[in-house]
C-alpha cells in the first residue's frame, strides 16, 4: 500500500475518483462564473460608467484570501464542496468580466454599424454578432480562470478534506509518504494542462473564421499568463 497511485483510505476515494472530484470542484465554479460574467459584462458594455466600479469590486474580491472566505462561508454552507466552490466562482470573475468586455468591445465599429443598418435589433446583434466575435477573448479568459481554479481547489483540504487532489498533500504529511505530495502536484498540473488544451481545441473549432498562424490570445483580454495566478495561488 505504498505505490504512487495507492490513495489512503481516509480520503474515501480512488485515484480516479479524486480526479473526478477535483474537476467538478474546479470547473463548476468557472461555469457559474461565466454565467454570471456574461450579463455583467454586457451591462458594463452597455453602460460604460459601470465598468470601472465592477472591475474594482471583482479585484477587491479576488484579493480576499480563500481562507478568509471559508471562515465566513462555513457558518452558512458548512464544511462542504460548496464552501470551496463559491470563492472559486467569485475569483473567476476578475478574469472573465474584463475578457468578455474587451472581446465585445473589440468588434469593429463598421461591423456594428453595418449590423444596425441591416436591421439587427440590440438583442439579435449581441447574440449573432458581438458574442461570436468575442469568442476568442472569452476563451482566453476561460483558460486563465480554469487553470487558476484547478490549482486553487487544493486549499479546500483545510475545511474538512474538501480539497480533492489537494487532500493528498495533507496525507503526505500525516503518513510520511512524500510520494503522495508528488502525485498531488503532478496530477493537478496534468489536469490543468489537459483542460487548457481542450479549451484551445474548443476555440479552434468555434472560430474557423480567424486567420491561421495568428491565433493569439487578443492582448486586449488583459489576462495574466496562466502560470502567474497558479504561482500566486500556491502562496495563498
Amino acid at each position: 500500500m505504498n505505490g504512487f497511485f495507492d490513495i489512503p483510505s481516509d480520503l474515501q476515494h480512488s485515484y480516479l475518483g479524486l480526479i473526478g472530484l477535483h474537476l467538478r470542484e474546479a470547473l463548476l465554479p468557472v461555469l457559474a462564473g461565466l454565467l454570471l460574467a456574461l450579463p455583467l459584462a454586457q451591462l458594463c458594455v452597455r453602460f460604460r460608467w459601470l465598468y470601472p466600479p465592477v472591475l474594482g469590486v471583482t479585484t477587491v474580491l479576488y484579493a480576499i484570501p480563500s481562507l478568509a472566505f471559508f471562515v465566513v462561508l462555513i457558518d452558512y454552507t458548512g464544511q462542504t464542496e460548496l464552501t470551496v466552490m463559491i470563492p472559486l466562482a467569485v475569483y473567476s470573475l476578475v478574469v472573465l468580466v474584463p475578457a468578455i468586455v474587451d472581446g465585445v468591445r473589440s468588434v469593429p465599429q463598421e461591423t456594428l454599424a453595418a449590423a444596425t443598418a441591416m436591421g439587427f435589433g440590440p438583442v439579435r446583434r449581441y447574440v449573432q454578432v458581438q458574442l461570436p466575435i468575442a469568442v476568442p477573448a472569452i476563451i482566453a479568459g476561460l483558460r486563465v480562470a480554469t487553470v487558476s481554479s484547478i490549482s486553487l481547489v487544493s486549499v479546500g483540504t483545510l475545511i474538512g478534506n474538501q480539497g480533492a487532489l489537494g487532500n493528498l498533500l495533507a496525507d503526505a504529511m500525516f503518513y510520511h509518504r512524500p510520494v503522495l505530495a508528488v502525485n498531488s502536484v503532478v496530477t493537478t498540473a496534468f489536469l490543468a494542462i489537459v483542460m487548457d488544451a481542450l479549451l484551445v481545441l474548443v476555440r479552434v473549432l468555434l472560430t474557423p473564421w480567424m486567420p491561421r498562424g495568428t491565433r493569439k490570445r487578443p492582448k486586449a483580454a488583459g489576462a495574466p499568463e496562466p502560470a502567474a495566478p497558479a504561482l500566486e495561488d500556491a502562496v495563498r
Partner: peptide, 12 residues
C-alpha cells in the same frame, strides 16, 4: 447599406 471597409461579419 454599404460602408467603408465593408463592415463584413468576420465570423460568417
Amino acid at each position: 447599406y454599404v460602408i467603408q471597409n465593408a463592415g463584413l461579419f468576420q465570423h460568417r
